[in-house]
Design a protein around this nucleic acid. Structure first.
Lengths: 243, 243
DNA sequence: TAGTGGTCTAGACCACAAA
DNA sequence: TTGTGGTCTAGACCACTAA
């Protein structure tokens, strides 16, 4: 069982949040199951109650659990997939959709920042970016191409990792104490270029869902410029609207 | 100046939240203005710091303010267009984007409900639907094709109106007292059919953003099944994500 | 260096639900 | 009555920002 590291730079409440989050994702608790009580977690992990509550609060804000005074904390039923308002990893997304995720790293290198991302990432011309290109598979079939550009000064050496098996977000959190907490994105429908068509195993000019996303750390600092091209025949967004 | 009541049943943090919320709404602080610090509020209202932080947290969660370690708490700028979480009319959308809206009604008729919408609209086979097809223009150029299917029993005679100049939502609210308050939608990238290509003045198989949306009244009753096909070269969604 | 918000502790009392 | 989460206090130390 995972534990909490006192020496880590990652806040205790966040470590607990990750533990609980993972356990819910792994299905250790099913919808409507009651989670451990606050006092159980206080004892189990040797934390104060306020710290435990802070972790729970994150889960509540995400709609993953709900709390009832006098009763306990329970796993929510999965809502209509809400993959447009929340930042989730590719792996989580595939799991929610019942598909088997796969990743092939196509390239991983340091580059000079191209002009078109300078403003988005709030950096100067010539600054170095870590460029990571990954082909994503769902049930062993190509699904999408992801191109990440990271401000290398903020996470030096970030490319010395194996991103076929590790989440970039997790690496940023664990190794550099950078937590991506918000993002802005634009979604378009675009035709597949010849290169994309080959990689994704579709016809040239087939419709793709194209996402351009800027991700920010808690401080509001831009961390990543991400472009995703998703096969239009294999992927759809689901979202709920309010008045 | 409003104050906090210790005898009230309303939690102290919530009372403070309301005070700050109102003051922001009243424009006492403008975007980018710094709010009082935690310790100022602790003194001013005789609260503990944790209570003050709880009030701030609510404001942060709503996106009304943001906080920066070492600097302070500031009023947020009005957000990046949030056209994926809110139901807005075509008119409002065009206005926000600075484009001139236009509408051409292509067809308006009663039809038997096709099988593929029965479940979505929670109706029986053979039930009558009002079908309304509109071409939408932006700056006098074709932008999208919208096909609405309405449960006719809930709004009889709804098609006896001029939808070139009137909003369907407004008509439902004014004439039938039906307010659409929530919706679920799916967004895909699809190739333009020959018919759509002609209407939208694009090449066959050009990428389109396709939306399928079910809209619900306050009671949770499905009202409308809407399909929109938007030109990929002229339209993009913008949205913000959170952890 | 002074002042900000971020994290964390160790208590306390309360409201609510279930047995 | 017992155990749950909800509210609140009074501290402490840390990380970051700006002067």
């Amino acid at each position: 069982m995972k534990d909490i590291s006192r020496s880590s730079k990652i806040p205790l409440y966040y470590q607990l949040y990750e533990i609980l989050y993972d356990q819910i994702q792994e299905g250790i608790w099913q919808p409507e199951d009651m989670l451990p009580t606050e006092s159980e977690l206080v004892e189990r992990y040797n934390l104060s109650r306020a710290t435990v509550r802070q972790a729970f609060e994150m889960l509540v804000n995400q709609g993953l659990v709900y709390r009832r005074q006098g009763r306990g904390t329970f796993v929510s039923r999965p809502a209509f997939e809400q993959n447009l308002n929340r930042i989730i990893s590719f792996w989580e997304d595939m799991k929610q959709r019942g598909l088997k995720p796969g990743t092939i790293v196509l390239s991983s290198e340091l580059i000079q920042a191209p002009d078109d991302v300078l403003e988005s990432l709030e950096i100067e011309p010539g600054q170095e970016l870590a460029s990571l290109v990954r082909l994503r598979l769902a049930d062993d079939e190509p699904l999408s191409m992801e191109h990440s550009l990271l401000v290398h000064d903020l996470c030096p050496g970030v490319l010395d990792q194996d991103y076929a098996n590790n989440s970039l977000r997790k690496m940023l959190a664990d190794q550099y104490n950078i937590r991506i907490v918000s993002a802005k994105q634009t979604i378009r429908a675009v035709p597949a270029t010849k290169q994309l068509a080959e990689l994704l195993d579709i016809d040239v000019a087939s419709p793709l869902l194209h996402i351009a996303r800027i991700s920010y750390a808690e401080t509001g600092t831009p961390i990543e410029y991400l472009r995703i091209n998703l096969r239009g025949d294999r992927y759809a967004f689901h979202t709920e609207l309010r008045e």
